[in-house]
Amino acid sequence: MTNEQNKQETIKKETLWTKAVRKFFRDKMGVISFSIVCLYALIALGVACGFWATEWSELNPDMKNTGPSADFWLGTNILGQDIYQRAIFSTKTAFEVGLVVALVATMLGAIVGCLSGYFSGTWIDEFFLWIIGCIDCIPFYLFVAAVGFAVNTLAQNLNASFGIEGFEYFAMHIAMIATFWTATARLVRGEVIKIKHLEFVEAAHAIGVPGPKIIFKHILPNTFHILLVQATIAFVSAIKSEVILSYLGLGVKNTVSWGKMIAEATQEVPAGIYSNFFAASAFLFVLVMAFNIFADALQDALDPKKVS
């Protein structure tokens, strides 16, 4: 009988997570894409620590729009700035935008989704669904523009009243977070409604565990696989949206990003100047592609029911 029990335990020990890790590392494309993402992350970290790409904003007035050379590997832009360094520096911008947006949006979505799902059928759920519904029917770029306006005003007020500076830098982050969290919230809500009726939650109820503790200790951890996948999707969406928002003049301020470089390139490409365009596009494409494949592999590994 003990033998039998041991066997049972080894089966049980293969939890969702160990199984996911095993499955993930068997997926060759997943591992390659994950390595690429890690490489980008290292580049970004290096920039943040000031190891490289420190001269990204330096002007070289006599070297405008030059082609690739030994000094400037990918040439210079219209102001004579080193495009290679700018592209490298933009990696940091991308990771910063992606991480901030992904983390906050996923967290917000998780909390709202949990509450909404736990209280499904009550006015609390109705209220959250109403908010999600409202946000979902506003066109993304216009909503971002609207949030951008409001955050800028808020930033001015903050500056005037409290002397807090630089809040407008986060206008774009906040705008993206405000739109991205709804997808996560919907998914988590659905999952929570499913989990809510499982025995272990009902057992927790039966022995008198308080509601909030059930939500955050017993239910939320069980939606973690959704959150992880949603976070990777939000990350990709954020760095992709950043390009469009930069083109619309709603992008990051006082720094450089691939989006800004491509937005600049919209003026240059018709004139036959490609350095900015190629550098930023290539960096962006490889990262987004790697992240997309990584997100897919993660989903395959984590979701036992996913049909692939």
């Binding site: 390009v243 469009i244 989006g259 491509i262 919209t266 490409v269 596009s281 987004v288």
Partner: peptide
């Protein structure tokens, strides 16, 4: 691959 290319790049 199609999903990974930015709209703006496609247009350009």
């Amino acid at each position: 691959v199609g999903m990974s290319i930015s709209f703006l790049i496609v247009v350009i």
